[in-house]
């Protein structure tokens, strides 16, 4: 494998794992949110890297899609967080039964 590519893939993997662990262990919704973004960007990085390595455009297009979806997600997600904060005065995701029937 191309050494540059290897480095980029390693970087993406590290970023992804940081994001993953953040999502799993943190309670603050905002932090979790940022970690999710981190994972998405790790994936984007891979898309672009492989697109570069294979000389195709598909991966780059996919990266744009991810960015657009992520932007939309941020809009919805942040507004939910704000709404929850208003109602409950907390951004902790461990508030029980918030999602239970």
């Amino acid at each position: 494998m191309n050494p540059t590519l290897l480095a980029v893939v390693t970087l993406a993997a590290v970023l992804f794992c940081i994001g993953l662990v953040g999502v799993l262990i943190r309670r603050n919704a905002l932090i979790i949110f940022m970690c999710v973004e981190l994972m998405l960007n790790a994936a984007n990085l891979l898309f672009v890297a492989f697109a570069w390595a294979h000389g195709g455009l598909d991966g780059q297009v996919a990266a744009f899609f991810v960015m657009v979806v992520a932007a939309a997600e941020v809009v919805v997600g942040l507004s939910i967080i704000v709404a929850v904060y208003r109602a409950r005065r907390t951004t902790s995701v461990d508030v029980p039964d918030a999602l239970r029937l």
């Binding site: 999502v23 262990i25 309670r27 979790i32 461990d94 029980p96 039964d97 999602l99 239970r100 029937l101």
Partner: peptide, 17 residues
């Protein structure tokens, strides 16, 4: 089956992972 749905976001995330 709905008992699996604990309502805790982080456990969902764990299961996803």
């Amino acid at each position: 089956t709905r008992k699996v749905q604990t309502g805790r976001v982080r456990s969902y995330a764990l299961v996803t992972v």
